[in-house]
Design a binder for these strands. Structure first.
Lengths: 188, 188
DNA sequence: GTCTATATCAAGATAGAC
DNA sequence: GTCTATCTTGATATAGAC
C-alpha cells in the first residue's frame, strides 16, 4: 500500500514522511511548503501536484497519523490476554508505546499545526476518540477503565509537548499504577 | 494591579484581553498583530509600543495564563477541607473549574500558538507543572494522587481542543470517580 | 509528473510625526 | 503613548515549459 510496484516509496509517501520529520524538528508553526519540498527531494511545483494545497497536505498528515495509531492497536490486540477492560488496556498500551519511539512527538506537533491552521482538520480525530470511548465503554463495567484511559491521555499529552515532569522512575511507577487500576479497579 | 488609578484598564491589559479572545475565536494560527490591535482598539504602532514584538506579546499571554491558574488555586485553598491528597485535590479542582467557564479554551489555544511559533515559550509552563508535581508528591503517599491528576490533565486536554467525547452525564461520573480515587486510593 | 518563474499577498517590524 | 506610512520578507499558489 505504501510502496509502488518497484518497491520504492511514492512521492506522496516521501512528502508525508518529510513533513512529519520537519514538524518534529523545526516546530509546527514553521512548516512551509518550500521546506517540505526540499526535504522530500522535489520541487515545490512537484509537491503541489501531489497535494494541491497546504491544507490538503495537512489533512493527509492527520489521516496517516490516525491510521498509524489504529494499526498499532490492532497489531497489539493478539498479544494481550483477554480479560476485563481489554479495550482500555489496548488503547492505553498503544498510546504508551508510541510515546517512546518519537512517533508521538510527530503526531502531537502535527496536530498542533492542524489546530493552528484550521480547527476543522481535527474532525477525524474527534471521530476516532469518540469510537475509542464507545469501545472502552462496551467492554468495561466500572469507571476505572475511563480513568486509566484519561490518565494515559494526560501523560502522553504532557510528553507530546515536552512538558512531562516525570523521571523514568516516576513514569514506570505511574504506568504500573494505571495497569493496577485497569485490573483491580478503584477501592470501594 | 490590573487597572490604573482611574479604574480603567491599561492598554497592556486591553491588548492581552483582545489577544486571548481572538485566539479562542479565530484560532491560534491566525492571530495577527493587526487583528489584536484592532480588537484592542488601538493601532499596530500603539500595540508594538506596549509589546515590542509578537514574541513578547505571546510571552506575556503565557505569563498571564499561568498567573490566573495559580490565583485560582490559591483562592480555592481555604475552601477545601484539609485531609489526604489536598494538593492533588487543589490542582484537579482548579483545572476542572477552569474548563467550564471558557477560560480553559483560551489558555489551551494560547499555548498552541506558543508551541507553534516557538517551543521555548512553554518553558514557564514546564516550570509550573514541575512545581505542581512536587507539591502533589510532598503531601501524598500513594500513586492515586498522581493518577487523579493525570486523568484531569487528560480530560481537560480533550476539552481544551474540543475533542471530548463525553456527555455531561459521563463527565459528572468521571469527576466523581476521580474524587473517589483521591480519597480512597486504588484497590489493593 | 516534475520543473522554473512569477504573481500575489499577508504579516512583522521600523521611522518619524503628533 | 499612540498614530500613519512604509519597508521587507517569506509563503502560498498559479502558469506554462519540459
Amino acid at each position: 500500500m505504501l510502496e509502488n510496484a518497484r518497491g520504492r516509496k511514492s512521492s506522496r509517501e516521501k512528502i508525508l514522511d518529510a513533513a512529519a520529520e520537519l514538524v518534529s524538528e523545526i516546530g509546527a508553526g514553521r512548516l512551509t511548503l518550500d521546506a517540505v519540498a526540499e526535504r522530500a527531494g522535489l520541487s515545490k511545483g512537484g509537491l503541489l501536484y501531489n497535494f494541491p494545497s497546504k491544507e490538503a497536505l495537512l489533512q493527509a498528515m492527520i489521516r496517516r497519523m490516525i491510521d498509524q495509531v489504529t494499526e498499532s492497536r490492532e497489531a497489539l490486540r493478539p498479544q494481550l490476554k483477554p480479560g476485563p477492560n481489554l479495550e482500555a488496556r489496548l488503547a492505553t498500551t498503544t498510546l504508551l508505546n508510541m510515546c517512546c519511539d518519537g512517533k508521538m512527538q510527530e503526531i502531537a506537533t502535527g496536530l498542533m499545526v492542524a489546530t493552528a491552521e484550521n480547527p476543522r482538520l481535527l474532525d477525524p480525530v474527534r471521530e476516532v476518540i469518540s469510537e475509542t470511548l464507545q469501545r472502552i465503554k462496551s467492554d468495561s463495567d466500572d469507571d476505572a477503565a475511563l480513568l486509566g484511559w484519561l490518565a494515559v491521555e494526560g501523560l502522553s499529552n504532557l510528553e507530546m509537548h515536552n512538558l512531562s515532569p516525570f523521571s523514568d522512575q516516576d513514569r514506570e511507577r505511574i504506568v504500573q499504577a494505571i495497569n493496577r487500576l485497569l485490573t483491580k479497579g478503584i477501592a470501594s
